[in-house]
């Protein structure tokens, strides 16, 4: 699970930095946005929704904590 910025797409507009409700993006010494407090994400998806350049992905998968389990009785 992670909040991942694709720097090939990111233009450093700082929208995510400004809007993340948990304030978890930071700016490095060059003023570049990065994910500073990964652990405090509450998985709201706002950053991925709003990034004007589609540069953010917030990912989770079934095995980390069972958010969903694949059915075994699938026809």
């Amino acid at each position: 699970m992670a909040v991942v910025i694709d720097y090939d797409k990111c233009t450093n507009c700082k929208l995510c930095y400004d809007r993340c409700p948990e304030g978890l993006f930071g700016l490095d010494e060059q003023g570049k946005v990065y994910v500073k407090y990964q652990h405090e994400c509450w998985l709201c998806g706002a950053c991925q929704m709003d990034c004007p350049f589609g540069a953010i992905q917030v990912r989770y998968e079934e095995n980390v904590k069972p958010i969903f389990l694949k059915r075994d009785d699938k026809e």
């Binding site: 998806g45 991925q48 929704m49 917030v58 990912r59 958010i67 969903f68 694949k70 059915r71």
Partner: peptide, 24 residues
Amino acid sequence: EGKCWLYLRNLEYNNIDLRDVKIP
């Protein structure tokens, strides 16, 4: 609905249909 948008994106990412899963 809050957070569910992201949940849908992740199901898509994992190539899963809502009917294929059970949600604990």
